Simulated assay, not measured.
Amino acid sequence: MAQMLMHSLTEDFRLDDQHDHYRDADDEVVTARLAGQEPPHAPEPRSGPVLDLMAMLQKRPCCAGGTRYEQGHPREPGSGRRTG
């Protein structure tokens, strides 16, 4: 199964088709600095809605308060760990 996965990930890969955008941007900065010019700046990051991840997690039934043991799970905390 692992060989099938590796084959499916590599069969259409061509290194010549890949383009290194980071290197291009780095070359632009170095060239500008060597010429005594102001180097180009990175584009402004896109902003989107800010999500309150803690509030979202607390709304989930599995995380809605209490420990796992208090929520009716049969095992006590730590009982599933292997030792040794």
Rank of each mutant, 00 (worst) to 15 (best):
M6Y: 10
L5R: 10
Y69H: 13
Q3H: 13
C62N: 06
P39Y: 07
R75D: 12
G78K: 06
P49A: 12
S79D: 15
G36T: 00
E38I: 12
Y22M: 02
S79E: 15
D24F: 09
C63S: 00
A25Q: 05
E11C: 08
R23G: 03
R46I: 06
G80R: 09
R75F: 14
G78D: 04
H41F: 12
D12M: 03
H21S: 13
D24M: 09
L53A: 13
D16V: 01
G78P: 07
D27Y: 06
D26E: 14
R60E: 02
L15D: 07
V29L: 01
M6K: 08
H7R: 14
G72Y: 03
P45L: 10
R14I: 00
L34H: 04
E38G: 15
S79C: 12
Q3A: 14
Q58T: 03
P74S: 05
L53F: 09
L53C: 11
M6L: 13
R60I: 00
D12L: 01
L53H: 14
A55S: 07
P74Y: 09
A25T: 01
T83P: 07
Q3D: 11
M6T: 01
T83E: 14
D17H: 14
T31K: 15
G36R: 04
Q37H: 10
T67L: 06
R68C: 15
P45E: 12
E70W: 11
G80S: 12
A64I: 00
R75Y: 08
G84Q: 01
Q58E: 01
P49T: 07
P74F: 05
G65V: 00
G80K: 15
D17Q: 15
P39D: 05
M54A: 13
P45G: 08
V50D: 14
A2C: 11
P43F: 06
S79F: 11
E38P: 02
Y22R: 15
Q3W: 03
E44Y: 09
M54Q: 15
M6D: 06
E70P: 05
M6R: 11
S8L: 09
H19Y: 02
R81H: 12
S47E: 04
H7L: 09
G66D: 01
P61W: 00
P43D: 12
D12P: 03
H73G: 14
Q37I: 06
A55T: 05
D24N: 11
H7V: 07
V30T: 13
M1G: 06
D20Y: 07
P49D: 11
E38M: 15
E44N: 08
G84Y: 00
F13H: 13
P74L: 02
P43T: 02
